[in-house]
Design a protein around this nucleic acid. Structure first.
Ligand SMILES: [Mn+2]
Ligand SMILES: [Mn+2]
Ligand SMILES: [Mn+2]
Ligand SMILES: [Mn+2]
Lengths: 152, 152
DNA sequence: GATGATTATTAGCCTTGTCTAACTTGTCGC
DNA sequence: GCGACAAGTTAGACAAGGCTAATAATCATC
């Protein structure tokens, strides 16, 4: 009875569920998906503030291509999550955390965009693809993209 | 009065909503998001059928890293959308449409993966990033990725 | 061919993210 | 300061995609 050899085949991962390598990849993608919208919003809000001095829901709605109530509800979640502050009927501000995330997203967006352009892609397609790809690029990949774009 | 020059600044897009160029990009990304899960499922189902002769919900759940009821509900949507057929308590089959989509997704996945590897990324990270990036790569970008990977 | 383990389904809950319709507030011109 | 119009909010619907708990069917295996 000493030791145990293979009481249960395996039982040591502190992971949830089996942790098939493939499953881990999918879980990572799902995790990334959960943050996509917040990332796009704070990035856009930072940009609006930079360009117009303020971020109004109506402009967010126009740029995002959604309706005003959709923006309102999303802003509610962002506020709940500590990324923005807002007062009723006023424009939106980023918290320190929101600003940090925005900065990060802007840099990442710019690197992905420059990378695609340096590959020879046309600007419109590059912008569209970058908008989706940016949320699924690891730090490591981002570094490779940056290096490639620089040494293009 | 002939012609019209600029009666209304612009009013010709058959698009919904203003169609700010940015908004178009975001709408494209949202569109892509709607297909991500279906793409991952049919790709995985094709792979399971190829490797084990059949695609059982339990194996889909393991590989996707989700629970069995989640798989069941998703398979319901895939069947409704004409990508798979299934009978109660039996394993799943792809329709012709599902097979076509699976082929496309497998090829695209493979190109994105090879591209990331040829950039110098380690296999684990490459696999994880490819799983997310693949759904946001346009035909044009995919062609550039393939060319780069080949001529690496 | 009974029975226990594995697999699949169903029911029901929750959050996110989208919409429309209706209402409220703010702003700007006069 | 009033009234219109623009902007914002609220209410409520709906689909997707995740979960747990409970139930049902299938399959091994003896
Ligand atoms: Mn984006
Ligand atoms: Mn972006
Ligand atoms: Mn994928
Ligand atoms: Mn894939």
């Amino acid at each position: 009875m000493m030791a145990d050899d293979h009481t249960e085949a395996e039982a040591l991962e502190p992971e949830a569920r089996p942790a098939d390598p493939r499953a881990e990849a999918f879980q990572g993608v799902r995790e990334a998906r959960r943050n996509e919208l917040a990332e796009d919003y704070v990035e856009l809000i930072a940009e609006l503030i930079h360009e117009h001095g303020e971020a109004r829901p109506v402009d967010i709605a126009t740029k995002m291509g959604v309706t005003a109530p959709t923006v309102a509800k999303t802003l509610g979640r962002l506020a709940r999550d500590g990324l923005i502050t807002r007062a009723k009927y006023r424009s939106v501000f980023l918290t320190e955390e929101g600003r940090a995330l925005a900065r990060e997203c802007q840099q990442r967006h710019e690197i992905v965009l420059r990378f695609l352009l340096s590959l020879g892609l046309d600007p419109e397609t590059a912008e569209r693809d970058a908008e989706g790809i940016e949320h699924h690029v690891s730090e490591r990949t981002l570094a490779l993209f940056a290096a490639f774009a620089d040494r293009s």
